[in-house]
């Protein structure tokens, strides 16, 4: 008890929330219950009660959060994007989907097996060091959604180091504004002070900082069977595609595991081969897609998950979450620009 009081006495004056006045909750308890009960509820909650805009997770993160009950991320209200492009649009890109060599696609199984059979070593296999290192660039992921459904998000580059003992460091650099469609850019351009979807996106970079460890130990699946369990290979192909993205977000994936992964994907019905593509970094890769479809009677939203693999090493180069209905727009895109081991956090 004495120690606890000493800590309180020591830290109390530095408490950032010590004098914070907490604003009334934007949702009533009843609204929160409705939101919790409604698996397909929009994050903003019932109309009229919520704030004029909300920041939401879109793409894989949001989809993962709701897949267990709803199937597909429901992140948008119904928008009505119309009108001409404004004379002075807000600076920022409108994200376009990746173009395919084979638009209609063919079953991916044979192609993925062939790729798995010819993999060569890549940087994760050839590098050495105490830290796993990954550099990514993402579009979307965290977005501001207007009450009408118009979205605005940010491009950002992230570097992350993970030590073998589980400590983690991250460095995030905001690179600009992006929109999933022209109507959203038009909408937000008309606002003299467009809000920030993520406050960190409009601040200067902070440099490298340690971030919380994972709450559970991260361990790369040891063999194909364990990998299949980790990926939840019994689930539909669209979910398997998202788990693939999460696998690469969580680990440096060695060649053997990459081959196992491609073999598991090859055995899963629903993956479509689109041949050669060029990712947003200008790198050549090969692409597969899988549809993400909610259970019958639930959300009307449909999505397509795209995975771009390196044609020789089989590493994941890019991931795209494309909403295909009710709107056609990219909600999340990620490039894995560098993945290897290193001895330095810098």
């Amino acid at each position: 008890m004495k120690l606890q009081q000493q800590v309180r006495d020591l830290l109390g004056p530095a408490d950032p929330a010590r004098d914070a006045v907490v604003a009334p909750a934007p949702l009533t308890a009843h609204d929160v219950i409705l939101r919790a009960e409604d698996a397909t509820a929009t994050p903003g909650g019932p109309a009229g009660r919520n704030a004029s805009r909300r920041t939401v997770l879109v793409g894989a993160a949001a989809a993962v959060a709701v897949l267990g009950s709803a199937g597909v991320a429901q992140v948008l209200r119904n928008g009505a994007p119309t009108g001409a492009v404004p004379a002075q649009p807000l600076a920022g890109t409108v994200l376009e989907p990746v173009a395919y060599e084979v638009p209609a696609g063919v079953p991916a199984g044979p192609h993925l097996r062939a790729l798995a059979a010819r993999l060569v070593d890549g940087p994760p296999d050839e590098s050495r060091g105490y830290y796993s290192y990954q550099r990514t660039r993402s579009w979307g992921g965290f977005a501001t959604v207007s009450p009408e459904g118009y979205m605005m998000s940010f491009v950002r580059e992230t570097r992350e180091w993970v030590a073998d003992d589980g400590r983690r460091w991250q460095d995030t650099t905001p690179l600009g504004v992006e929109f999933p469609d022209a109507a959203s850019r038009e909408y937000w351009s008309a606002r003299p002070q467009s809000p920030s979807a993520d406050p960190s996106a409009t601040r200067p970079p902070e440099g490298i900082r340690e971030i919380p460890r994972d709450l559970v130990e991260r361990r790369l699946p040891a063999d194909r069977a364990e990998l299949a369990r980790w990926l939840r290979a019994d689930r539909p192909a669209g979910e398997l595609a998202m788990r693939t993205y999460q696998l690469y977000s969580s680990f440096l994936v060695p060649r053997r595991t990459r081959a196992d992964l491609l073999t598991i994907l090859a055995e899963k019905p629903g993956f479509v081969w689109h041949g050669r593509v060029v990712d947003r970094a200008g790198r050549r890769g090969v692409a597969v897609t899988a549809e993400l479809v909610p259970p019958p009677g639930q959300s009307p939203q449909r999505a397509q998950m795209l995975l771009v693999f390196h044609p020789s090493t089989g590493e994941l180069l890019a991931y795209e979450y494309l909403e295909t209905a009710p709107k056609h727009r990219v909600l999340h895109y990620l490039l894995v620009l560098d993945a290897r081991r290193t001895d330095t956090v810098s």
């Binding site: 997770l57 990514t136 940010f154 992230t158 601040r203 902070e206 971030i211 994972d214």
Partner: peptide
């Protein structure tokens, strides 16, 4: 918070200490 960090990567930035 940890899940946002891990899966979102586009994280709310914590620890402004």
């Amino acid at each position: 918070l940890a899940n946002r960090w891990r899966h979102g990567r586009s994280q709310p930035t914590p620890l402004p200490l």
